[in-house]
Design a protein around this nucleic acid. Structure first.
Length: 638
RNA sequence: GGGCACGUGGUGUAACUUGGAUAGCACGGCAGCUUGCGGAGCUGUUGGUUGCGGGUUCAAAUCCCGCCGUGCCCGCCA
């Protein structure tokens, strides 16, 4: 609450505060010494169901009734009668025990529209982050196959969360963890060395198919399996020709991943390669700082390994009690770190607790004009990491490991780090009711694959079919790029409208649906708005007067109230890491615009024309800003 | 054995964190709307005992307890 006061108030929070202050004064006057709870007025605020009931309401009478032992209806009536109008609130009524306030629509319309037209791209943004640095890790795809429709969920979530954090004034580092060690890379590498090293299509797609084939071969031929395991050891050890080739193959695969990312408008700052973590002194430093909580048994099942006893962890996370094992291995008896070991070390680096001495190289240029950097065996030092907060976009099945890793920091006296590591656990994407298995290759479909690339090309194809029939598109040369924008809006919206924690069953029908609650539907709203402005020869100068006195209590005002909620919507989406808050908001805006559009002429709005144009213009600004956070580029005709 | 997540009309979902007025939206079904600022749209209608049972409360989809179902996790794999 303290933070809000440091901000320029958004229009809706300003009015809310006015209402709360007026309520506070009245309630004190009437029931002065009654015991109340901290923040009860704040929590009592909501929006009435029916438009005719008012614009903002409080249920505080129900709470007061508990102490006065009278009925809420009477209390509400008494309060509403005594309430004094304020700057933006003109009158009060009571109904069903609620106290309803009516906003002065003329003053409020002027306030809201002026704010939007003044702040433009900055409208709705917030200062809560106070420039604190946060690192977002996503999507950490295996460099052995292409992004599938599940990887895409991760990448899109990571992108939107990063955008939201930036809009809330955090300084965001977009990081990708590349696991170039392990069996998946060894398997692909074996294929490269023994089957084919002549890619004849997009590299990740080609490598992925090779990977699937080798996996199949490995199941049947034990000698192949053995060779791959030996190869795996060599790349884990580093310093061999095989390790160098493995890195090379993985880098080519990651470059192909980036092409997919770019097609989806996803960019990042830095990639951290697992082999570089192993090569650096990060692990031994991590062991040094955590020595007090680790053990190295000489006998028993963990002999020779470095472990952490689970009974150290469970007092801080009782949900981990009852585990089948009593310890978690950090360093294996052969000296290699486990996943948790590496992840703990990595997070100690993220928070600047230890220095990895990484060297970096420029990995590739990105279409957004900024290069992407990567850790590398040879390169120069750069400043990454050292953050105050880390967001890990990782699917929900890894909650257990994430929890243990987080708690290790509290055990070594860094509770603030434990609390600043946020596991954004999202639900799996299944295809046709079964789990995606990159290894078995069920992401390979008939004709079209369940890859991010094929999804985009299928959606673009579908959008083009529809766009070709559209008579509204004047620039026919742009059909291709328009279709692509529509396809991207459809895909991104479809992914983001579902709460992250829910599992998704991927279906082509849903993914290619451009009607109803969809990206194209909101894009359509935007295109219509833009066309109205163009037809009316609308310019900013003509809007300078605003003429907000022409507002009615119809859908124009409803739309204005919704536009006013942009900032709190963005803060909520960011705080809760729920992009569906944004898609819901877009649908609300679109639906209100449609109602406004059906009921109130704009260009033929006579004396209200100027005001309504300014409203439409304001809507396009808010749509653009919200689309921007979702990584969607709106288009003016479709 | 223990834990986590999910369960909302035929289907996909929102609201659950912070209890509040008639559970919102879309798809599907049915019936309409175009000489009008864009029909990828709009309007009306159909369909819900919010998995089940208890509890707390003036008030429960929301909080608590117990069940049931589905998925995931508890590896010296990552």
């Amino acid at each position: 609450m303290q933070e809000y006061k440091e901000l320029a108030d958004s229009p809706s929070s300003l009015v809310k505060r006015e209402f709360i202050q007026a309520l506070d004064q009245t309630v004190r006057g009437l029931y002065g010494d009654i015991r109340r709870e901290e923040g009860d007025l704040e929590l009592s605020i909501s929006v009435p169901r029916e438009l005719t009931l008012g614009d903002i309401s409080s249920s505080i009478a129900f709470r007061l009734a508990k102490f006065t032992h009278t009925n809420p209806g009477g209390i509400a009536k008494e309060i509403a009668k005594k309430m004094q109008p304020s700057e933006h609130i003109s009158r009060f009524e009571d109904a069903n025990g609620y106290i309803n306030a009516f906003i002065d629509e003329k003053k409020y319309a002027a306030l809201v529209l002026r704010d939007i037209l003044k702040r433009k791209k900055g409208y709705g943004h917030s200062a809560v982050g106070k420039r604190r640095k946060v690192i977002v890790e996503s999507p950490s795809a295996n460099p052995a196959h292409p992004w599938h429709v599940g990887t895409l969920r991760n990448a899109l979530l990571g992108n939107v969360i990063s955008n939201l954090l930036e809009a809330c004034s955090y300084e965001v580092e977009r990081e990708d963890y590349i696991d170039d060690l392990g069996l998946q890379v060894a398997t692909a590498l074996w294929g490269w060395l023994h089957v084919s090293n002549k890619p004849d299509k997009k590299f990740d797609q080609w490598l992925g198919e090779l990977y699937v084939n080798v996996n199949r071969e490995m199941q049947q031929k034990p000698e192949v399996k053995k060779q791959i395991e030996e190869l795996n050891k060599k790349i884990e050890d580093g310093n061999s020709q095989e390790a160098a080739t493995g890195r090379e193959v993985a880098e080519r695969c990651v470059m192909a991943h980036q092409e997919t990312a770019f097609a989806y408008g996803i960019y990042r700052d830095v990639m951290i390669w697992e082999s570089d973590i192993v090569r650096s002194h990060l692990l031994s430093k991590a062991l040094d700082i955590s020595a007090s909580i680790l053990e190295k048994p000489n006998d028993g099942k963990y002999a020779g390994a470095i472990i952490i006893k689970l009974d150290k962890i469970t007092p801080l996370a009782k949900e981990l009690e009852g585990s089948r094992e009593d310890a978690k291995v950090i360093i294996r008896s052969n000296g290699a770190a486990t996943y948790i070991g590496k992840d703990f070390a990595f997070h100690a680096w993220k928070f600047g607790l230890i220095d990895a001495g990484f060297s970096y190289k420029k990995f590739m240029d990105q279409p957004n004009g900024k290069p992407i950097y990567s850790t590398a065996p040879q390169g120069s030092p750069m400043k990454f990491g050292n953050v105050k907060r880390a967001i890990n976009v990782i699917d929900a099945s890894q909650a257990y490991e994430q929890q243990i890793m987080r708690i290790m920091f509290a055990l070594i006296g860094h509770e603030e780090i434990t609390n600043s590591i946020i596991h954004l656990a999202y639900g799996r994407v299944n295809i046709e009711g079964e789990k995606i298995s990159a290894r078995s290759g069920n992401w390979l479909g008939e004709g079209r694959n369940y890859t991010a690339d094929d999804l985009l090309s299928e959606a673009t194809k579908r959008a083009l079919e529809i766009a070709q029939k559209s008579e509204k598109i004047t620039n026919r040369q742009n059909l291709e790029s328009i279709s692509r924008s529509i396809a991207l809006s459809a895909i991104k919206f479809e992914y983001m409208r579902i709460s992250p924690e829910k599992e998704i069953v991927f279906s082509w029908q849903n993914a290619l649906n451009f009607e109803g609650n969809s990206g194209p539907y909101v894009m359509y709203t935007y295109a219509r708005s833009k066309k109205i402005l163009a037809k009316a020869d609308y310019t900013e100068a003509s809007a300078s007067k605003l003429e907000a006195e022409h507002v009615t209590r119809g859908y124009d005002f409803e739309l204005i109230k919704k536009l006013a909620e942009a900032q709190e919507t963005i803060e909520k989406a960011c705080d809760e890491a729920r992009p569906n808050v944004l898609t819901d908001y877009l649908l609300d805006l679109s639906s209100l615009f449609s109602k406004f559009y059906e009921s109130m002429p704009v260009i033929k709005g006579e004396e209200a024309k100027g005001f309504r144009l300014a409203l439409v213009h304001s809507l396009t600004i808010v749509l653009e800003n919200t689309f921007g956070l979702l990584g969607i580029e709106p288009i003016s005709e479709m």
